[in-house]
Nucleic acid binder design. Sequence first.
DNA 1: CTATTACATCGACATACGTGAGTGTTATTG
DNA 2: CAATAACACTCACGTATGTCGATGTAATAG
Lengths: 117, 117
Amino acid sequence: MSIDLELAPKQKRAAGERCCEPVVYPDVQRDHAIRMAEVAKALGDPIRLQLVDVLRKHAGKVCVCELVPLFDISQSTLSHHLKKLRDAGIVDSERQGLWAYYYVIPDALKELSAWLS
Amino acid sequence: MSIDLELAPKQKRAAGERCCEPVVYPDVQRDHAIRMAEVAKALGDPIRLQLVDVLRKHAGKVCVCELVPLFDISQSTLSHHLKKLRDAGIVDSERQGLWAYYYVIPDALKELSAWLS
DNA sequence: CTATTACATCGACATACGTGAGTGTTATTG
DNA sequence: CAATAACACTCACGTATGTCGATGTAATAG
């Protein structure tokens, strides 16, 4: 999950010399970084983070109509946030008649969580 | 780290009735959510996430001049990203002569990490 | 069929973001 | 002092974001 990278020793050098050797950044990590940043970005809004918190707490699926009164935002804004979470692959939804039920996709946060700890 | 919240039972009801009881959202969680979302937002860019990855891997402090060649961005853009990470309280820096050394603030990612796992 | 309900989408707006070129600042070299 | 080097900051630009009101779209009720 972390990169293999040898950095040049850190020490003051005379100006005119290179302060450090250029380092090659392995491409392996880049894909993971892009994916994890995508997830982190989706969590980078207080309302979306709280949405995920509520959904995670309930093992089952949660109806949108139960989510709306939790926040001081309009229904359309909430729907927008849910779409962001869907696009990031963090949650998914099921339609049942008029209602839409949302749930956190298992292991969606696993990669980021593992990297952070 | 998670909220205390009792949701109404989920079942289809006749239209005209409320689909669910309004729920009170505890304010306690809100502060945590705002703080964690701030951290997540700062990590919501691939370059910044990789920056934190490099800094975390090196227990010591890392010179900016060692970071520049790792990414295909200008020095000013890198400096901008480092400022974002500083503003989010994830990293800090020390000046030593011409060089600036960055490091991850211990436990800066702790709260978010704990919530994610 | 009509009305209503639950939810998604569209349009619009102000703000924030990522980026680079250029400039400023500070410290070191000669 | 003048030149240079490392880094931060300013300005500008196109794009993305969060928000709401309004509209669209299904499904249910009567």
